[in-house]
Every structure is written in C-alpha cells, then in structure tokens.
Design a binder for these strands. Structure first.
Lengths: 125, 125
DNA sequence: CCCTTGTTTCGATGGTTGTCGATACAGACG
DNA sequence: CGTCTGTATCGACAACCATCGAAACAAGGG
C-alpha cells in the first residue's frame, strides 16, 4: 500500500490527478497560446528540426547542419526555422558566416507542464 | 549532494539528460507520427475540446456539452472532433441519443513521453 | 572591389484547412 | 409512422500553408 495508491489503475479517469490538460478545462486564452506552440510542432519537418537543434552538440546547430538532412531547398528550411522562431521555440544568432539556432527551454517546458502528470518541479522546491 | 546532482543548472544544455526530443534527433518516421498529434492539437478550438473532454466528469463528454462553449456551429465542432478522432486522441461512442467522447490516454502519453525530462514511469519500477 | 558561400526574403502556386449552410442520418417519443 | 432533437456528412469558399525558383542580403577572401 502507501505509495502504490498514487498509481491506482492507470489509464482510467480519476479526479484530482493527471496533467493540467486533464485536470481542468483549459481557458480560451491558454488554449490559444499553447495551440500556437503545438501548431509549430505540427509539421514533421519542423518537429525534426527542433529535435535536431536541441540534440546537437553544444545545444545549438548551424543552418548548414540542418539543410542536408532533408530533401528540401534552403528557402524552405529557412521558412520552417522562421515559424519555429516566431512561435518562440527557438532563437537564432549570426556568428560570422553562419547562423546558429538553439531551443528556448521555457517554451518546451510550458508544453510539458501541461501534458505531464504532476511533474515534480525540482528536488527541494 | 546526491539528488541535487540530477537538477544541475537547469535550463542550459547538457548531454545525456532531458527529454527524448532533446537527447537525440527524432527519426523521420517518429517525427511524422508525432507531428500528426501535435498538428491535431495545434488549433485553439481542438486543444480546448480535448481538455474539456478529458476534464469532464467521468472522463467523457457528450457533444451537447461541448457545442455551447464555443461560438461555432455544430458542423464545425463535429469537424474538429473528427480531426481529434482521426489523430487517435479521442474516441467516440453513441449511447442512445447522444454521442460521448473520451480521450485516448495512450496518445497523450506518447506526447508527454517525448517532451518530459526523464519521467519516472512508476514508483517501484 | 568583385566573387563565392551561407542565409533570408519575395512572389507564385498548388494543396490544405476552418468555417458555414444545407442536408442526411440516428434515436426517442408521441 | 411522423416528428423532433442531436450529430455527422457534403459542398463551397476564403484563408492559410508548404514548397519552390529568383533575387537580395551578409560576411569572408581573393
């Protein structure tokens, strides 16, 4: 018993558990804000770009690292990066010849905070 | 020390940490699959519908509970429910006069599994 | 200075999507 | 059986979007 009570019969609905999205209805405003993030990730190329950038060494990736991965032209990749940037999911910086992109951790956290079943935010807090 | 080592300086990039999306590049196939889910949630109405259904008493909601929330016609709500259904995020069942929708927990879990920083799956396991 | 390479912007185009009204289907109830 | 209510489908239309080629901008190197 004890801690196993928290698990219960997982998969079925329970009150006062689960992620915020399941616990109570999202307001129109929050839905609008979050859906902008989801929409930006709702394209296979963009989701993969995001993952490529996030997982790249140093936490950042040059555009030149990304274009070769897809069968798409430069302008198209640049367009998708712009969409991700305007959604606040990534940010770009030019250093010399190349432009480097990195993910914005806060944006990803806003999503996981909504989806994740009662995440423990930190160890002490 | 001990547990605080797991927290580190949160927000900055580190190797071998973070969510799957950050830990390694998503494959083209997985990106395509997940982006379908993100895309379905990439509309403010649909995201709110999903949350309304998930948080409704009993874990299910009748369409009649949903239409009044929005300034949209019945066909439009029905269309959005169909998109959510075809994405595998919800399932619907007719019982008598009304049609009841409920969320598919597995679909939500697939998303949180990708976004969540190393979720502990259960207490003992 | 021009040329070369990396990246973005522009304009166009074909495809997708959100929304509606009209209509059809499904049950319940006389 | 007719009718009423709830829900889904259909057809249409405007808006949006992914993609491309062409052109522009940025920076470095002859």
């Amino acid at each position: 018993m004890s801690n196993q009570d928290l698990a219960l019969t997982e998969g079925t609905w329970q009150p006062a558990c689960c992620s915020p999205l399941v616990r109570e209805p999202l307001s129109a405003e929050l839905s609008a804000e979050l859906s902008r993030l989801f929409k930006a990730m709702g394209d296979p190329v963009r989701l993969r770009l995001l993952s490529l950038i996030a997982s790249h060494a140093g936490g950042e990736a040059c555009v030149c690292d990304l274009t070769g991965v897809f069968d798409l032209t430069g302008p198209t990749i640049s367009h998708h990066l712009k969409v991700l940037r305007e959604a606040g999911l990534i940010s770009g910086e030019r250093r010399g010849t190349w432009v480097y992109y990195r993910v914005e951790p806060d944006a990803l956290r806003r999503l996981s905070d909504v989806l994740v079943p009662d995440q423990a935010p930190a160890v002490g807090a």
